[in-house]
Design a protein around this nucleic acid. Structure first.
Lengths: 116, 116
DNA sequence: CTGATCTACAACCATTTGGTTGTACTTTAC
DNA sequence: GTAAAGTACAACCAAATGGTTGTAGATCAG
């Protein structure tokens, strides 16, 4: 299933989905093993429907997938999408690192000028 | 999962701030060099006040800082906060990688059982 | 078959978000 | 000193978010 998620709105959805502690906790649970929505809901002080909505947000952001097993719906994490978000932030760090290098170079050049 | 409330809300703010294409673009601009709010606003098809609000959201998330220079307010990126977000996502990847290792180990053990 | 379990989804509500316009305060330029 | 530039902030609005309750469809257990 190739989903075009390299769009800006795809990234919007990823970060928006991760901007909630409950949803991040759900991700951390389903990244190691599948869990039914009901078993996930047991951990939070809110209605089942609320947790169901959180899962829906994660699904829309492609951070989890659901797979039916009988009457249960098993939720599991999608590492590829998390990797995409991580890569984006690392790209920012890379840009910053290059700026830092550039500044270092300027400083070194200044030092040379002073010495000359 | 034991969570530090103040840290969690900090992470909420970081991801929420990054969940908007305009704000991500602002971050990518101010990460290499400082820019005044007005000069940032020139790039977007919205009012100055709207851009000012976006900068405010980024500031609250500690993704940028503002420094006054005369009548201008210079906005610059804070790499440490971006690094925090990147580290969190990398931690998820790490957890996932460990699960993958664990599964490999189980498969190997199963193979041994079959062989015995 | 019947009842319990698991999920889906609609309707509703309060709050937040992302935008607008308008006003006012500093600082700079002439 | 006056005008322009840069910013701050309030008031307002539509839409999205995060929660609720209620209803209904499948599926499983006895």
């Amino acid at each position: 299933m190739v989903v075009d998620q390299s769009t800006e709105t795809g990234i919007d959805r990823i970060f928006q989905a991760l901007a909630d502690a409950t949803r991040r906790d759900i991700v951390s649970r389903v990244i190691t093993a599948s869990h039914s929505v009901t078993s996930l809901a047991e951990h939070y002080d809110m209605s089942f429907a609320a947790v169901q909505k959180h899962v829906q947000v994660l699904e829309r952001a492609l951070l989890v997938t659901k797979e039916r097993r009988g009457r249960e719906q098993l939720v599991r994490g999608r590492i590829d999408t998390i990797g995409r978000a991580a890569a984006l932030l690392q790209a920012y760090e890379q840009i910053w690192a290059q700026r830092a290098l550039r500044i270092d170079k300027i400083l070194v050049e200044d030092t040379h000028k002073e010495k000359s």
